[in-house]
């Protein structure tokens, strides 16, 4: 089977003492929805850093969309990142740009024509239920709305993979479910979704494929029924 995200015996260390990941194997097929769960410091953000090519693995191979990420040359990195949609816990919107411009931003970066931007951005904002907020600035809208703007920005390029790094971390619990449901909806349209979170209870209530990371290794990787029991791998 071809995996869109494929970590083979991946280790990563910041220095000799701080080993972030040890012999991690994660294989995600096209169209899957995967939760990566773990306490803070377990190694979740290291996985994100590897996938975004912010850091490189000290051993093993990280491959995304068939690209060996560790082998990318410096000038190829921007083009590689355009195939990934990313949302972060802190939204990372540009404060002095309107919602429209924030979303249009990732299209402008890829040298897209104004005509396409004028059609595509309202369409995506509409999907996210944000059409009436297009002219607002990030500080004028709620946390949940800001995260939806970030999602719109991640999806506007139509990337095959969406990576969500603690997308619900800064949002009220009731809105968190809304965000995850939105992610599942996106997944149903064919996008592979990888959601990293420490909120184990919420993940369990949704079910699906869950990968648990603890102290730099994978301790659980299986499909779980909603509200089902999770047994740690041995």
């Amino acid at each position: 089977m071809n995996f869109v995200i494929d970590l083979n015996h991946v280790s990563m260390k910041y220095d000799k003492k701080n080993i972030a990941l040890h012999d991690v194997n994660i294989h995600v097929g096209a169209g899957e929805f995967v939760f990566i769960v773990g306490a803070s410091g377990a190694g979740k953000s290291s996985i994100i850093k590897l996938l975004l090519r912010e850091k490189t693995a000290s051993a093993g191979i990280v491959s995304v969309n068939g690209v060996n990420v560790g082998r990318l040359k410096q000038r190829q990195i921007p083009y590689y990142r355009r195939k990934l949609g990313v949302v972060f816990q802190d939204f990372r919107l540009i404060p002095n740009m309107t919602v429209f411009d924030n979303v249009a931003f990732s299209l402008r970066v890829t040298d897209t024509s104004n005509k396409f931007i004028r059609n595509r951005v309202p369409y995506i904002l509409n999907l996210m239920g944000l059409e009436h907020k297009a002219k607002s600035y990030p500080h004028e809208i709620s946390g949940g709305e800001q995260q939806r703007v970030a999602l719109a920005r991640a999806l506007v390029n139509d990337p095959p993979i969406l990576i969500a790094d603690e997308p619900t971390g800064n949002i009220d619990p009731e809105l968190s479910f809304e965000i995850v449901e939105l992610l599942q909806g996106i997944n149903q349209c064919g996008t592979t979704v990888l959601m990293v979170t420490h909120e184990q209870e919420m993940v369990k209530s949704f079910g699906g494929r869950i990968i648990t990371i603890d102290r730099g290794t994978v301790v659980f990787d299986d499909t779980v029924q909603p509200d089902g029991r999770m047994e740690v791998l041995r």
């Binding site: 921007p78 990142r81 355009r82 990313v86 990732s106 970066v109």
Partner: peptide, 16 residues
């Protein structure tokens, strides 16, 4: 620098 960081993650080239 935050702004620059965001640009990097949406795939902006350095010249951009």
């Amino acid at each position: 620098r935050k702004e620059i960081n965001i640009m990097k993650f949406v795939g902006a080239t350095n010249s951009f």
